[in-house]
Amino acid sequence: MGSQSGWRGETPSPIAGYFADPNIDVVDGRYLVLATTDGSPEWGSTAFRAFTSSDLRTWQDHGEVFDVRFAAWASGHAWAPAYAQANGKHYLYFTADRGSIGVAVADEPTGPYIDSGRPLVAPGDFDGVAIDPAVFMDTDGTAYLYWGNGTAHGVRLAPDMLSFAPADVVSWVPENFREAAWVHRRGTDYFLSWSVDDTRSEDYQVHYSTGAGPLGPWHYQGVLLRKNVERGILATGHHSITAVPGTDHWVIAYHRFALPEGNGYHRELRFDRLHHGPDGLLEQVVPSGPPLCLPLPDAAPAGRV
């Protein structure tokens, strides 16, 4: 484990407590974050929590929105929630039992969510370990699901958001890929980003590639986010990205070792600006400075760019 001895008074997360794997989106004019509940050995929590905010600084805790023990096929290890909105419903994709991916449905973004009744991806269905789902909604309304540890997988979801054609799954191994693949789009450019190393390592970080479509092909571009030892900020990874609707402002959410004495089981959430450079590439995120405050426009529309 890395030491926090280099800590220089960095401000703790605006969301108090141990949480990880944040999925950030903008829904009904507010930021929505779904997160893994952290703080237990071997990531043994069973439930996810939801938080909302209008500015990324002041957050409302909506409590537990789904417990995997209410799924008939799962018993624990609730990791890495992902969110999508379609068909007038809200969808929560999640990891359970260390290697299965499920999906639950709700009428409101903060739940309660009801399990669909079966795993969407079961152990052994595809190469690698089935963890860390993410969903990208393209501008034409098509939704794509991503997941994987060791091997990345992507596929177009069916309109019901509860299924996909196994034959359509595209699999690949990004540079130094570990887990937590995420896709976002700006204009005609697609960006794939992912976590490198182990979440228990202080060198946990994010790399990225660019592509011409939601399933690639992808061109490796390098590091997007890494630790800042001078400020004691370690293990920056398992991120998500959203745009402020109607603007070209972008936010990256991620977790890090909690300050000042966290580790791979005691993590906290962080929010920073993400910048697209004039060359079309992403500028490396430097995790430093005061907590980000980025108010949403009044009556911002729902959905992710």
Rank of each mutant, 00 (worst) to 15 (best):
T142E: 15
L145Q: 08
W147F: 03
G148V: 04
G148Y: 06
N149I: 06
T151M: 12
T151N: 11
T151P: 15
A158R: 09
D160E: 15
D160V: 14
F164T: 08
F164Q: 04
P166A: 07
P166N: 06
A167C: 08
D168N: 13
V169D: 08
V169K: 07
V169F: 07
V170D: 06
S171H: 07
V173T: 12
E175S: 14
R178M: 15
A181T: 11
A181R: 09
V183C: 03
H184F: 11
H184V: 15
R185W: 08
R185S: 05
R185I: 07
T188I: 10
D189T: 13
Y190P: 01
S193K: 13
W194I: 00
V196C: 03
V196P: 00
T199I: 10
E202Y: 10
D203P: 06
Y204T: 10
V206I: 07
V206Q: 01
H207N: 09
Y208I: 03
T210Y: 15
A212Y: 06
A212Q: 14
P214L: 00
L215S: 07
G216M: 09
Y220L: 02
Y220P: 02
Q221G: 12
G222Y: 00
G222L: 02
L224T: 03
L224A: 04
L225G: 04
R226Q: 06
R226S: 06
K227Y: 00
V229M: 13
G232I: 00
G232Y: 03
I233E: 00
A235F: 09
A235M: 13
T236C: 12
G237H: 00
H238F: 03
H239P: 05
S240W: 00
S240T: 02
I241A: 02
I241E: 01
V244L: 07
P245R: 04
G246P: 03
